[in-house]
């Protein structure tokens, strides 16, 4: 933490340097009259609070990721040989599929262990195992998610923009529609973004995506033709479909809707009240905090939000929901 403005990140600098009368940059009335000095002061306060919630032990995520993956894997033989009822497998596997994205999300932002840390392997491990239930490699998840942060709510550059829908039931429908073979959504959009980026990481992500998808389909086909089709459905295929829809809805649509034109720092995500609660909405009620400070672990965003709330209100953020 520092008072030196030269160390502020680019987004913060844009916020400070924004024209004071620029209503489009910060949408609500509360911020329109803020002068440069006030904006700098608020940003310092915000960063001081954020610093308190960053870091801290992250082993819980490692245990959850590895343990969850082990249980998910164990469900295959347990279901195939009748030790676990297919309905139980479906519920548990779907839960683990969704939970896997949460743990992987931390790894995408290097929150498990930073680069250069002696525990860096744990960050990689969490990322690699957590996304396998949705049959997407960590490399693809990370590249596309970081692009989402970089170009949040930009119609062409944000890989998640295709999740936008006018209302909640259309949003659920869109999660399914975007997975159709030749629709430009989710994984198809991620692939085209990677092709456009054409970096070492994006090329690796494309290769690994192809491999993971081949493995996924090979497992499904092999199980199905050997008499375990129903086990394949409840262990992997259906939890993946349900999990992806749940993830897209709560992680992409709900916190970002409406997306159009909301590209500035304090309007990239919303503070909203979820009908299924903070835990079952994957802590997305306070997703704005994640976009402001991705280094704050998912489980601490609500506490950080509550402390930052007066500052965010001065910034013009609608904090009425929580």
């Amino acid at each position: 933490m520092t008072d030196d403005l030269t160390r502020l990140d680019t987004l913060s600098r844009e916020t400070i340097d924004a024209p004071e009368s620029g209503g489009s940059a910060l949408p609500l009335a509360a911020d329109e009259g803020l002068d440069r000095h006030t904006r700098v002061d608020l940003l310092k306060q915000e960063r001081a609070i954020a610093a308190k919630y960053q870091n801290g032990p992250m082993w819980g995520y490692v245990v959850a990721a590895v343990g969850g993956f082990a249980i998910w894997l164990a469900l295959f033989p347990l279901t195939m040989f009748g030790a676990v009822h297919p309905a139980i497998t479906l519920v548990v596997s779907t839960f683990l599929t969704v939970a896997g994205y949460v743990t992987c999300h931390e790894a995408m932002h290097d929150n498990i262990a930073k680069r250069g840390s002696k525990y860096r392997w744990a960050n990689q491990l969490v990322g690699e195992v957590s996304l396998l239930p949705i049959a997407v490699p960590f490399s693809m998840g990370r590249v596309s998610h970081l692009e989402h942060h970089k170009h949040c709510n930009h119609p062409e550059k944000d890989p998640d923009y295709t999740d936008e829908a006018p209302n909640w039931w259309m949003a659920w429908y869109k999660t399914w529609w975007n997975r159709q073979p030749r629709v430009d959504g989710t994984i198809n959009r991620y692939k085209s973004v990677c092709q456009q980026l054409d970096t070492r990481e994006s090329r690796l992500a494309l290769k690994q995506t192809m491999i993971v998808q081949v493995i996924y389909l090979t497992v499904l086909f092999t199980m199905a033709w050997n008499g375990y089709a129903i086990a394949a459905v409840v262990c992997w295929w259906l939890p993946r479909q349900l999990g992806l829809s749940y993830i897209r809805y709560f992680l992409s649509w709900a916190p970002h809707h409406p997306r159009a034109g909301k590209t500035e720092r304090y309007e990239q995500a919303n503070i909203f009240k979820s009908h299924v609660g903070h835990f079952f909405s994957m802590c997305m009620e306070t997703h704005l905090i994640h976009h402001l400070h991705p280094g704050i672990p998912n489980h601490k965003t609500k506490a950080a939000y509550l402390e930052m709330k007066p500052i965010l209100e001065k910034r013009g953020v609608d904090c009425s929901a929580i």
């Binding site: 389909l217 086909f221 033709w225 089709a229």
Partner: peptide, 13 residues
């Protein structure tokens, strides 16, 4: 391939 490799045996089973 998915229709033949997965949907077909799922329907049968």
């Amino acid at each position: 391939l998915f229709g033949i490799g997965f949907i077909a045996p799922v329907i049968a089973q």
